[in-house]
Every structure is written in structure tokens, then in C-alpha cells.
């Protein structure tokens, strides 16, 4: 490595946008610091005790007006900076719909990554260059935070809820992956690398992974093993809602609300079944919190999501 880097690598589509805001703030800060330091030191020298600089009546401009002037100037500057940063933030909220979906589990003290193909990695994440990637993340124990400095990406990974982040890698290479939220004794060992591969290399890498079921197929097995299939089947012993085509649909609930059956809804319905009971059904489903592991949950949810594609021709 030649020399000391003063600027982090820019390896995602988001990185130049963040850096533009950062650079503008640097310029604004430099101007203000020079202004304050220049005035302060200039006054301190010119008006040092015993100097001959005139000190008579203050010019009229240095009265209430200037005070109101710099208050409004700072307020407008603050509003402008907010507007710019806020617009950039909102533009990056929604991932593109065709993004490659990769699941991440944080646990003390490792990252577990599952690709849609079923390939599994520890403390590593291989992603294709130029393709949007959406990370769907959860934690098994405490809060972790998925941090890739080169992508300007950070998202806490929280037990009991799904968090999401997305990026499009723009530079092939290997980058640091850190846990950024203090997560216990070996927090600083919870790091790995993100490998950005050109699409053909990514395909090659993906094929080289041990053959196995994909995530949804693994989920179908877990669906049976956990006993879900016992009730959620047409003509089963218990009156339970069918799940085919559920994902992405509006669901009417017993208390009159309507909710979107997204991933968080599917997951919550497994862990906290009495929270959102579907209209026309009795709240008889037991909670699977503590029964299904985080990895099993992810597989079952992936299976339920795959049923949409199967159901809609």
C-alpha cells in the first residue's frame, strides 16, 4: 500500500453522492472557521490593550440589524443544507424492485450471509458488480450494525425486527465489513470483507458453491418440520388461512385494519400470531418465538414469499 489514504474508497453508487454532501459541508465549515478565526485573531491583535486603534462610537450597522442579519443567514444556510441532505436521503430510501435479495444474520460475533441460491457465507459477502443488492437483516442476540465504509453503508441489525439496506457496487475489489454497534466482548473481531465481482465472476463463484436447496426450498422443508403445514393446508384439521399468494397482498384483519403482507408481517405473524389476526379466523396459532431459530425463520419467510410466484401465473 503506497502512502496514507486521506479519502475512503468509493465503491458504490451512493458513495459519490454522500461524498458530495460531505465535501460541501467541508467547504462551508472551512469558510466559517476562517471567518471566525480571522475576525477573532484580527480583532485580538488590532484591539490589544494599549494599541492605538480607534475605539469610539460603534458604527450604526453593528446594532440589532447585524444580529438579525447573521441569525437569518445561519438559519437559511442550515435550511439549505437540510434540504440538500434530506433530498439525497429520500432519493435513496426505496431499493429498485429487481434488486438481488441477500439475507444477513448478525450474531455474537459473526456475520452469516445467505444468497437466494442457498449459498451461505460467514464473515464474507460476495456481490455482483453493477447490480442493486438488497440486504434483509436480523440479529439473533444483541444489536449489531452492518457497516461497509467503501459503500457509505451502515444499518443496525436488531433482534426482533427486520432491517433493510441496499447498494449498487461500482468498483470490483475487496472492502472492509465491520460491526459498528458495540455488541459485547469480541465486538472488534466481528469484521469481514465484501468482495465485489464482475457479473460473470459472480456467476462462476455462485456455481462453485456447494450444491444444495435454495433458500425457499429449505424453507419448504422447515415449514413441514416446524409443523406449520399441519394447519396451513386446505382441508386441514384447524381452520387456518391459506398462504399461497399471500405475500404482497392486502390482508383484512379481525379488528378491521388492513395491512400489507410484507416480510415483516409474515415474520411477526409467526412470532406474535395474536397481534394481527386475519378476519374470519380464530386466534389459535401458538407463537414460534424461541421455537424457530432466526435462520429457520428466514427460510420459512423465503418459502412463503416464493409462493407468490407460484400462485400468480
Amino acid at each position: 500500500m503506497g502512502g496514507v489514504a486521506l479519502w475512503p474508497a468509493q465503491a458504490s453508487a451512493e458513495a459519490p453522492r454522500v461524498d458530495a454532501i460531505f465535501s460541501l459541508l467541508l467547504v462551508v465549515s472551512a469558510v466559517i472557521i476562517l471567518l471566525v478565526a480571522g475576525l477573532l485573531l484580527g480583532f485580538a491583535i488590532r484591539y490589544r490593550r494599549g494599541s492605538k486603534a480607534p475605539r469610539g462610537r460603534l458604527p450604526a450597522i453593528l446594532s440589532r440589524d447585524i444580529e438579525i442579519g447573521w441569525t437569518s443567514a445561519t438559519a437559511f444556510l442550515a435550511l439549505f443544507l437540510f434540504w440538500w441532505a434530506g433530498a439525497a436521503q429520500l432519493a435513496a430510501v426505496q431499493p429498485p424492485p429487481q434488486a438481488l435479495e441477500i439475507r444477513v444474520i448478525g450474531r455474537q460475533w459473526m456475520w452469516e450471509v445467505r444468497h437466494p441460491s442457498g449459498a451461505r457465507e460467514l464473515d464474507e459477502l460476495h456481490v455482483p458488480l453493477g447490480e442493486p443488492v438488497r440486504l434483509v437483516m436480523s440479529a439473533e442476540d444483541v444489536i449489531h450494525s452492518f457497516f461497509v465504509p467503501a459503500f457509505r453503508l451502515k444499518q443496525d441489525v436488531v433482534p426482533g425486527r427486520l432491517t433493510e439496506a441496499w447498494f449498487t457496487a461500482t468498483q470490483p475489489g475487496e472492502y472492509h465489513l465491520f460491526c459498528a454497534e458495540f455488541c459485547g466482548t469480541e465486538h472488534s473481531a466481528m469484521r469481514g470483507r465484501v468482495v465485489v465481482l464482475p457479473p460473470e465472476d459472480y456467476a462462476r463463484w455462485s456455481h462453485a458453491q456447494p450444491e444444495g436447496d435454495n433458500l425457499a426450498q429449505q424453507g419448504a422443508k422447515a415449514f413441514v418440520a416446524l409443523g406449520c403445514a399441519g394447519c396451513h393446508v386446505a382441508g386441514g384439521p384447524v381452520h387456518a388461512p391459506g398462504l399461497a399468494g399471500l405475500y404482497g397482498r392486502q390482508v383484512a384483519l379481525a379488528d378491521g385494519r388492513r395491512v400489507m403482507a410484507d416480510e415483516a408481517y409474515l415474520r411477526d405473524s409467526i412470532l406474535l400470531p395474536r397481534q394481527d389476526v386475519v378476519a374470519g379466523y380464530d386466534p389459535v396459532m401458538p407463537s414460534f418465538a424461541g421455537v424457530a431459530s432466526e435462520a429457520e425463520l428466514q427460510r420459512v419467510v423465503a418459502y412463503l414469499m416464493s409462493l407468490r410466484e407460484a400462485a400468480t401465473p
Binding site: V28, S29, F82, G86, Q89
Partner: peptide, 29 residues
């Protein structure tokens, strides 16, 4: 005088942290 200088730098870097996209990158660092 030292206070005014250091407080100015501290306050201005607060603007970086108030900007969400920049904060995402530098928070917890």
C-alpha cells in the same frame, strides 16, 4: 479563545452528523 475555536469546530462537525446520508457513514465511527 481556545474554547471558541474548539467549540466552533465541534459545532460545525455537528452539521455533518445532522445530515442523514453523511451520518449513516460516520456514526459509530
Amino acid at each position: 479563545i481556545g474554547f471558541i475555536g474548539l467549540f466552533t469546530v465541534g459545532g460545525l462537525t455537528g452539521l455533518f452528523l445532522a445530515s442523514v446520508p453523511v451520518d449513516v457513514h460516520v456514526t459509530d465511527t
